[in-house]
């Protein structure tokens, strides 16, 4: 375990060297343990691939007091850890306007587009972390054959729901933003529901499986989501 102060108001607790599901399971469990303490002046606890960033109010805490408390609390043992969270099945319309890079990914991988879809849907992914924008999940690991570098020039606007690939990761853009991941499809399911009681669909440690759908189902689900969204 390595402690890395970030400025005067946060410290990152590093639990491993690499992107690894077991390390990430410890990260999620330790982050939850810190949050459960309800310490005053701990304003945010952010689990990432292999580390946790703890944000504190420097008026109420100094670094030594905080790191002492973190060390006393100690990281859970691997056998105490529930390694996986809730399973989500995410419907995706692959290719066409929804996935403008599907063909490119297929030729990069030397596969047919249908084989890319089959590979992408064959894996149960782990939500390693959320970041970039509200609700954006970093999912892994993507099958090796699909590991493709980001676009040279990011798109100025990626539509919400777009499913992208970058290296050994796949992810979903919850809101319209610029983005450099290769887009292979789009889901009608909102990942960030800003007026909802629980605005974030996915949590760190959850699992995701993708399910291919056709245009009709995409439109039907989009309508249902919009309706549900508007309901008081």
């Amino acid at each position: 375990m390595r402690l890395i102060p970030l400025g005067d108001s946060a410290v990152t607790v590093e639990l491993g060297e690499a992107i690894d599901p077991d390390v990430n399971a410890l990260v999620v469990a330790y982050a939850n343990r810190i949050i459960e303490q309800g310490w005053n002046g701990i304003v945010d606890v952010v689990p990432t691939y292999r580390s946790i960033t703890v944000h504190y109010d420097p008026i109420q805490w100094d670094l030594t007091a905080l790191t002492d408390r973190l060390l006393i609390l100690s990281c859970p043992h691997p056998h105490e850890v529930e390694s996986q969270g809730a399973l989500h099945k995410i419907p995706v319309l692959y290719g066409g306007d929804s996935g403008p890079d599907l063909e490119g990914v297929a030729s990069f991988a030397g596969l047919k587009p249908s084989e890319v879809i089959a590979l992408h849907t064959s894996v149960c992914y782990r939500v390693y972390m959320l970041g970039f924008t509200p609700g954006f999940p970093y999912l892994g690991l993507l099958p090796e054959q699909l590991a493709i570098p980001r676009l040279q020039t990011p798109r100025p606007r990626v539509p919400p729901g777009s499913v992208g690939l970058a290296d050994r990761q796949t992810g979903i853009y919850p809101i319209a933003t610029p983005g450099g991941w290769r887009l292979i499809g789009r889901t009608p399911i909102p990942l960030y529901h800003r007026t909802g009681l629980d605005p974030f669909l996915l949590k760190p440690g959850d699992r995701v499986r993708f399910r291919p759908i056709d245009q009709n189902e995409f439109e039907r689900l989009s309508r249902e989501m919009a309706h549900g969204h508007d309901r008081p």
Partner: peptide, 27 residues
């Protein structure tokens, strides 16, 4: 490997030109 940021972080992309992260920074 991606990790948490703080407001005030000076992060450095490959071109070496630093970016000072402010209030709406990525988490």
């Amino acid at each position: 490997i991606s990790e948490g940021t703080v407001t005030g972080t000076l992060q450095v992309p490959a071109d070496g030109q630093p970016i000072l992260l402010m209030a709406d920074r990525q988490t």
